[in-house]
């Protein structure tokens, strides 16, 4: 998946406006980034990438860029 497509998926998870995510955002700044959003994100990644993330790994993530890094080569430029 392209990075831009991933941002749109993430906007869905966070229920953020389309185009509002561009990579440098800090997740904690989103009111919607709560435990339910974390579960939603894990489910989305499971469905779209067939990758199983753990909550422990996600707990270390601070920014959108960190999320992209977590998915490694599953996300292309």
């Amino acid at each position: 998946m392209k990075k831009s497509e991933f941002y749109r998926e993430l906007e869905e998870v966070l229920e953020a406006d389309s185009g509002s995510i561009s990579g440098d955002e800090v997740l904690a700044d989103f009111d919607a980034w709560d435990s339910l959003a974390v579960l939603t994100f894990i489910a989305m990644v499971d469905e779209k990438f067939e990758v199983t993330l753990t909550a422990s790994k996600l707990a270390l993530v601070k920014t959108v860029t960190d999320l992209v890094a977590l998915l490694g080569d599953k996300i292309t430029v």
Binding site: E12, V13, E15, L36, A37, L39, T40, A43, M44, E47
Partner: peptide, 9 residues
């Protein structure tokens, strides 16, 4: 299946 509503299919 652990699925919040917003991602339910």
């Amino acid at each position: 299946c652990t699925r919040p509503l917003r991602i339910m299919s």
